[in-house]
Simulated scan of single mutants.
Amino acid sequence: MQFVFNLPHLLRLKATTQPWEALVTGADQTRMIKCADAWGYDMVAVPEHFVIPTDHVELSGPHYLQSTVAQAYLAGATDRIRLNSCITVLPLQHPIVLAKTLATADWMSSGRMMVTFGVGWLKREFDLLGVPFHQRGRIADEYLAAIVELWTNDAPSFQGAYVSFDDVIFEPKPIQKPHLPIWIGGDADAALRRAARYASGWWSFLTPPDKIAERVEFIKSQPTYNGRHFDVMHGLGTNRVGEGHVVRDDPDARPGMGATEMVDRLNWLAEQGVTVSSVPLPPVSGVQEYLDYAQWVIEEIKPQVK
């Protein structure tokens, strides 16, 4: 199983964040990601929102980065770890610009970029950016097709309701072929059908862990799934966050669980089809204590997981 490094202060969710994380700086994050890279963590993933309405701040927190910019910076600070997002809100961004930023970062990082696309859920964020919220699924499907066209065709051409282009050249192409890995985040049937068509991975959020296997089977049963390798991400702490970022009490997702319990839980997730996971930030007091814990996880826990 691959392990995601939980980089503190990428967001400040009430359900998962500890007070000390709000004091973590960009310089601290740079030091931490260099450690994670050296220790053998497989991936780091960056959340994204552009604006948070004030009535959502208590649960969602105010602090989010632009995912692709942060991924590119973290790529420049590391040598081998892969850079993902969780998630990039696809309908809120122009697909030509987004395709260019992701391809640029993949090219400059020697092929270490990934992206997890989602359609978003925060209606007022869409309203503020002038994007029709109830069309976001259709927009995302079209944008995905346009991005893949730009990444894979030497003479890209696309005609759609939301974006069109022809007689253009698009370079650099991503280093990775046919393109950098696309994952899909979300739990609705529409998201899973989108994953079957376009993606090589699924990031589950609200799906109960005991339902993951049947949802993966749903993805692989779609006529657009062609048997390609397919990753499934579910972190140990995922189910502490409910819809709308509400706080949920899940004894199987609590931070600071013991080694045996953690290994057993991760191996159980592997049996459900999970190939990528992470452990919750433990109740520690600061950066160095967290780094000590993160090193223990990668050296002592990961080797015992399937």
Rank of each mutant, 00 (worst) to 15 (best):
N226Y: 05
W203V: 14
K306D: 13
Y293W: 10
Y64N: 06
D37K: 10
V297S: 00
L90Y: 03
T17R: 00
Q288I: 13
Q93P: 04
V246R: 08
P47F: 14
L122A: 13
T152D: 07
K220Y: 03
W151I: 00
P132R: 11
G185R: 10
F133M: 04
L180R: 03
R240S: 12
Q159R: 12
M114R: 15
K211G: 08
Y143M: 03
L74H: 14
Y293C: 02
G186Y: 12
E299S: 02
D28C: 06
Q222H: 14
G273I: 03
G130A: 09
D231S: 12
A99L: 00
V46P: 09
I147V: 06
D37S: 11
T152E: 06
H94K: 09
A155M: 05
M108I: 12
A27F: 05
A188L: 14
W121P: 07
T238K: 02
G256N: 01
A15T: 00
E214V: 11
P156S: 09
E243I: 09
G120S: 10
N153S: 08
R193L: 13
W183A: 03
V284E: 08
H49E: 11
Q295H: 12
T260H: 08
N153C: 07
C35F: 07
R138C: 01
G111M: 13
G120L: 10
M257T: 04
I175P: 01
M43W: 13
L281M: 15
C86G: 10
G242Q: 03
T88K: 09
C86Q: 13
G61I: 02
I184S: 10
V284C: 14
A36Y: 12
N153D: 11
L236H: 03
R194K: 14
T30R: 14
A191P: 10
T17E: 02
R31E: 15
W20L: 06
A196V: 09
G160K: 00
V148Y: 01
E271D: 12
A103F: 00
S109N: 01
V168H: 04
L206N: 07
V148M: 05
Y225S: 07
P209Q: 06
K173W: 00
I298E: 06
T30D: 14
M32Y: 09
F5E: 02
A213T: 05
M108F: 14
M32K: 06
G286A: 04
D166R: 10
M108E: 04
G273C: 02
F3C: 00
S278M: 06
T68N: 15
P255F: 02
H229R: 11
L90V: 05
